[in-house]
C-alpha cells in the first residue's frame, strides 16, 4: 500500500501538484488518468523519489519514503519495479542480460539460479527463446514485455507503469494490460499505472484517480467512472467518438 498525503510539487515558481491525497491499494491495479499536463508524470516521479516533493508525505507500507535520505530511498527502491513509457531497456545488453540485471545487482544467486529465474519470467511474458536477441532486434510490444519481465524479476512489492500502451496496437496493448493485471494479482503487489488510454481503464481500472490541474479531481472504479456526472471526468472520458456514442446509448437507456 502506498499512501500519499498533501503532496505538493512545483518548478520555477509554477505549482504542478497542489496537494494530492490518495491511497494506492495492494493487490490491485491503481490507475492515474488525466489530460497531458495534469501532473501525472510529476506525481509518479515524486512517488519514485526521482523528484523531491516540496510538501507532503509518501509512505510505502508505513515507511515514510519522502523523508528518507537518498541512500535510504535507493534501498527501498530495490523493492520497486518500473515499466517506462519507452521500455528503457539497456541497449548494450541482450534481452536475457536486461532481465538478469536486477538479480546481478541485488542478489547473491549463482548464475544458474539467475538464468532459471530469467527463463521463468521470460516464459511468463511469452518471450521464451528470445533471450539472446538485442533490444533493437525485437518489436515495440516485445520490448515492453521484456521491460515488464525486468521489472518483476526481483519480485518487487511495488510496480509502476508509465503509459505502458503508448505506441502499441490495440491488440498488443490489451495483452500488456492483462499481463500487468495478472502479475498484480499473482504476486499481490501494489501496481500504479499512468495512462491516457480509456481501453486500459475499461480493461484493468480497478481503482482510478483522475488528475486535473494538479489536483485529484475524482476517484473511483471503472464501473463508477462511466456513471459519474462530474463534468471534468466526463469531458475526459467521452472525448473520443467511440465513447461519445457509448454515452449517448447510455443516456438513451440502451
Amino acid at each position: 500500500m502506498i499512501q500519499v498525503k498533501n503532496l505538493h510539487k512545483g518548478f520555477n515558481g509554477q505549482e504542478i501538484l497542489k496537494g494530492i491525497n490518495y491511497t494506492f491499494e495492494r493487490g490491485k491495479t491503481n490507475l492515474i488518468i488525466g489530460q497531458s499536463g495534469s501532473g501525472k508524470s510529476v506525481f509518479l516521479k515524486c512517488m519514485l523519489g526521482l523528484f523531491k516533493a516540496d510538501k507532503g508525505t509518501i509512505e510505502y507500507d508505513g515507511k515514510p519514503y519522502s523523508t528518507f535520505s537518498d541512500e535510504e530511498q535507493r534501498e527501498l527502491r530495490t523493492e520497486m519495479g518500473m515499466l517506462f513509457q519507452g521500455g528503457a531497456l539497456f541497449d548494450s545488453m541482450t534481452v536475457e542480460e536486461n532481465v538478469m540485471f536486477p538479480l546481478r545487482m541485488f542478489t547473491k544467486q549463482k548464475k544458474s539460479e539467475m538464468l532459471a529465474r530469467v527463463n521463468e519470467v521470460l516464459e511468463r511474458v511469452n518471450l521464451e527463446g528470445n533471450g539472446n536477441k538485442m533490444p533493437s532486434e525485437i518489436s515495440g510490444g516485445m520490448q515492453k514485455r521484456v521491460a515488464i519481465a525486468r521489472a518483476i524479476v526481483n519480485k518487487p512489492k511495488y510496480l509502476f507503469c508509465d503509459e505502458p500502451n503508448s505506441g502499441l496496437d490495440p491488440q498488443t496493448a490489451t495483452v500488456i494490460d492483462n499481463l500487468i493485471q495478472e502479475l498484480t494479482v499473482e504476486n499481490d503487489i501494489t501496481t500504479v499505472l499512468i495512462t491516457h488510454d480509456m481501453n486500459s481503464v475499461l480493461e484493468i481500472g480497478e481503482r482510478i484517480a483522475f488528475l486535473k490541474d494538479g489536483l485529484l479531481a475524482w476517484k473511483g472504479t471503472k464501473e463508477e467512472i462511466f456513471k459519474t456526472d462530474d463534468a471534468s471526468v466526463t469531458d475526459f472520458v467521452y472525448s473520443s467518438n467511440l465513447f461519445q456514442k457509448v454515452r449517448k446509448a447510455q443516456l438513451k437507456g440502451l
Binding site: R74, R77, M80, M82, G86, A88, L89, F90, P102, F106
Partner: peptide
C-alpha cells in the same frame, strides 16, 4: 546522453542503483 534520453538512467535510479 543517449541513456539519459531513453530513460535508461532513470531506470537505473528506480532500481536503486547509484
Amino acid at each position: 546522453g543517449s541513456m539519459r534520453v531513453t530513460e535508461q538512467i532513470d531506470a537505473l535510479e528506480v532500481m536503486g542503483i547509484n
